[in-house]
Design a binder for these strands. Structure first.
Lengths: 197, 197
DNA sequence: CGAAACCTTTGATTTGAATCAAGAAATGAT
DNA sequence: ATCATTTCTTGATTCAAATCAAAGGTTTCG
């Protein structure tokens, strides 16, 4: 069995947060996994690419983001240790994605390539169930954020961010948070100033 | 086998759009399904409720939406014939949802209750795979829309709506489309006028 | 260490969409 | 058909955030 020092320990913890995952099943999953190191600012996927892997973050921070024709960027989400990043739509259909995936820090990832991901999801029942539940969590989060994106004021968005993801505040530059909240860095700077008084 | 006149025909078509789904497996799924009729404006789920079923639309149109503390509404999405509406996050965890689900037209639905949905997803392999793929489609759509929600101008949003979902334009009142695009009905009315000239 | 690049803050100005308001048109109910 | 309600359009005004601009900070790395 993987011991606590292996990068797999965090993966197992995450799987067991959501479903019951016997050691026996994990032993079927482990050999499918590849270790990947990423450097700060490195792209794992760019708009127009076809995704080849699903990533689990052992160390570091990634963002998925959209760029419009003016070159403006919007961050869809940040993920840190214990999170997954992927573009299954592109991976499964072998079609180019419109979204970008980039490391914001040097980091260590675990990767499942297309073949192995499909194997895992069709032959390791607890992994199947994990994926359905995890995807459904993501889905709910995205639906709520989509509603909030256009209904909340910049200040409300920032206050929600502070309340819901305070750990990211310490870890990310301000302009990345602004691109996540959908406001300009100047506006965010002013909100911060106002709140601190 | 279900013939083309049964409401199940549309469901089978949708399942087979995404995965290979043998008749034999569909015979296991069919008995789990309940038929439900909805009236225009009827709520299937309100913020604060715990979701009890997953719905497939045979006829009609539903919206999922968010209300803020001022009573303003934002539509997350509209679904029509052939689409699914559910709040699995709430159903699986038995926790209250923040989102509302409402019929915008009289309609006919198929429903899977919690027990039957879990049975289907754990015992009918092609249904499992269908669900993973369908969820992943929804996920990608939501991620893109989340990015677009704050990066596009009202006019760009409306033009995208026209291009991507023209059939909804004919079917929905303007103010519902405005609540979907995250703009006021007045602004949408002006955009329309401008475009028509 | 020091220069360069990058990020954040602050100020002045512009602007586009929201808001407020009222009338027209469409829809639905009796 | 008629009335009541809801939805849509148009106009005037306001306002919050974007933009433009420049000066401080901070980090990076040669």
């Amino acid at each position: 069995m993987p011991n606590k020092n292996m990068p797999y320990a965090l993966l197992l913890t995450e799987l067991r947060r959501v479903v019951s995952f016997p050691d026996k099943e994990f032993l079927k999953l482990a050999p499918l996994i590849e270790k990947v190191e990423v450097r700060k600012n490195e792209h794992l996927l760019k708009a127009g690419d076809i995704s080849r892997s699903v990533y689990f973050i052992v160390e570091g921070c990634l963002r998925q983001y959209l760029i419009n024709s003016n070159g403006d960027e919007r961050n869809i989400y940040f993920k840190v240790e214990g999170g997954w990043c992927s573009e299954l739509q592109s991976l499964l259909n072998k079609t180019p994605t419109d979204l970008n995936l980039q490391a914001l820090e040097d980091g260590k990832l675990l990767a499942l390539n297309e073949k192995n991901w499909i194997y895992a999801v069709t032959h390791i029942p607890p992994f199947t169930l994990y994926f359905i539940k995890a995807q459904q969590e993501t889905n709910y989060m995205l639906k709520k954020r989509l509603g909030e994106a256009t209904i909340e004021t910049p200040e409300e968005k920032y206050m929600r961010f502070l309340a819901e993801e305070p750990q990211l505040l310490l870890r990310l530059p301000l302009f990345q948070i602004a691109a996540y909240l959908g406001i300009t860095p100047e506006t965010l700077s002013r909100i911060r100033k106002k709140i601190s008084t």
